[in-house]
């Protein structure tokens, strides 16, 4: 079972990969969002703050704003953000819940797709 440390390492890696990818940075142009990640089994949360075409910070817990929420157990969150699990498959199985507009949902999935393909 994944630990809190595994989770934050995976998210940190994701942030580095995200900010190093030119195409992904182009994809988030004028798309400032607070992506709230809730880890159900560890009872932890984190917020990815996207602003000025990059991930600006990774805030533990809530940042006061939730444009998008991603809710799943730690193993699934780590799998998705490290490219080891397919978010679409996990979503269809009901292992991950997504709250946000369909357009934002498509954008997050596309970012993960382009980042790991």
């Amino acid at each position: 079972m994944a630990t809190a440390e595994d989770l934050f390492m995976a998210l940190e890696q994701f942030v580095q990969r995200f900010n190093a990818n030119k195409l992904v940075k182009k994809m988030v142009r004028d798309w400032d969002r607070h992506i709230f990640i809730s880890v159900t089994d560890l009872e932890l949360a984190s917020t990815v703050v996207v602003a000025d075409d990059a991930i600006k910070e990774l805030v533990p817990g809530e940042s006061g704003k939730k444009d998008i929420s991603i809710i799943a157990p730690a193993d699934v969150i780590i799998g998705i953000f490290t490219g080891k699990l397919n978010p679409a498959k996990e979503y269809a199985k009901g292992n991950v819940k997504f709250v946000g507009s369909p357009k934002d949902e498509m954008k997050v999935d596309a970012i993960i797709q382009y980042l790991w393909s």
Binding site: N86, A88, K89, P102, D109, Q113
Partner: peptide, 10 residues
């Protein structure tokens, strides 16, 4: 969106 999701699922 259904087709997209099915394509993403393989």
């Amino acid at each position: 969106r259904l087709m997209y999701a099915m394509a993403r699922e393989g």
